[in-house]
Amino acid sequence: MRRRGVRFSLLVILPIIGIAGPVFAQVAAAPVDRKLHPTEVRNPPSLGTLDTGLRDPSGASIGVACATCHDPSHPDALARSRDVPEDFHAGIELHHGTLGCASCHAPDDRTRLRLADGETIPMRDVLQLCGQCHGPKYRDYKRGSHGGGRGYWDSTRGPWIRNNCVSCHRAHAPAYPVVMPAAPPNDRFLPIASDEPISEGKTGQHD
């Protein structure tokens, strides 16, 4: 009776091991087969360019790099100077709510950003600065549904290269601009639409 029990259990267990063995081996092998490529975020420029309002002979506007005066490698002496050339900075158009320069830039060091609690951070941490006010966008960005990017969706094959806030938004006027679209299709039936608003009575457009 006992021997029969042993034989029976062997009959049951051996096939289970036979089936399950390779399955477990596959599950265990899967995570270690490839190196993961970490997501990269494009670095924002440390300092931008100021439009001087002058134009070169070809008509292009002449800009002066902020770093010409505000040296990124030194604490900013110019920013504390009494004789700040106000006119020179008048070209900076600020359309960002009620924010002023010092809302984001560290007053003592224009090469760094300042958080609301007074702590200064390098320019490359712009996400942290903008995220202070734009919480839902910051959350969406962190979960990958805001900001776009290029490269790989599959981190086992290559990196996902993401934009930062100022890759797409101008920091001083962040609203996304109105743009001209790429060319429409040359439809066999539809002419290029005019700018007239589509009224309710107009025939439906099919293509």
């Binding site: 109105v178 060319a183 429409p184 439809d187 639409a193 457009q205």
Partner: peptide, 24 residues
Amino acid sequence: RVFEMAQGSLDFEHANTTYDHAVP
């Protein structure tokens, strides 16, 4: 195919796919 539609509608019959003006 990018459909331009009136806000508050989802009406493809009155949508426009060949618009050529500044957007949005």
